[in-house]
Amino acid sequence: MKEILTVKDLDLTFDTLDGPVNVLRGVSLSVREHERVALVGESGSGKSVTARAILGLLPERNRRLTGSVVFEGSDLITERPSRLRERRGRDMTMIFQDPMAALNPVYTIRNQFLAVLSRSHPELNAEQAEARMNKALRDVSIVDPIRVLDSYSFQLSGGLNQRVMIAMGLISRPRLLIADEPGTALDVTVQQQTLLIMKRLSESYGTSILFISHNLGVVRQFADRVCVMYSGRIVEEASTAELFANPRHPYTRALLASVPRLSSNELPEPIEGSVPDPREPMKGCPFKPRCALATDECLQPIPLREFGMQRVACIHQEEFA
């Protein structure tokens, strides 16, 4: 399958009052056609910043970004801002975590949807646009689209708003949809429904999805491939099945061990220590201070090594044959 998004060696540093803060340290990942890739990490891992860097949504000043983000042949980092604006919102769209915050409460859903539609399909007249919007809403399992279009976001539930956002994000049939913690702000039963809808639509529209999450369970249900981030770096990358059946990186293993299980009433294992301060310069593996297997060799820069279909940034792999 062809790669539609290739991120290579993305390095991002913010210049703050306290000095430079290196939030992304050489991030590389790719998304292929018809693929759903998850970027998993806890707070401070840099996963949300990565999404924003890909979309060009970072603050303009006080930051240094190197590396490349190639989307359908052109590097978005070197792209002209006007061209970037054109592609963003059409070929590559994003949906956000909190549907109530992402929709404007002073405009009806119809108004906002039309704004989106006029960018992707400027040739449609009013009637055709209405028909398109109705179909889009029905595709996300909304049974009364006209009522929804007439409403304001505060009149609708979180779940409905989320589905409206998905419909808007997919109406231009983008090649890539980036979803930042989809469903996190919703009730778990609604979240499940929403994810199933996204899965179904991505398959039928042929849209690839890059989604950011801190929830391993959601990732397992939803993604084809998973990239685990820690402290600005990707530490493991594998197919979902492989990752959960056979996690290789010590952080991935520790993270999985810290999730409460339904099958037993034992308390989950915490990870000792805390996330390193991004303001401190770092040598070698970021997880070393918290890792049971760490040795002095871990102070050397650790590349991502291949193990079959998996890639792991750890030199102690032989322990887990």
Binding site: V188, T189, Q191, Q192, G217, R220, R261, L262, S263
Partner: peptide, 17 residues
């Protein structure tokens, strides 16, 4: 419905759904 919506992380947990 609640139990069926839990995003589980292992096959043992899947069995509880």
């Amino acid at each position: 419905l609640l139990l069926a919506s839990i995003p589980t992380v292992s096959e043992e947990d899947d069995a509880f759904r």
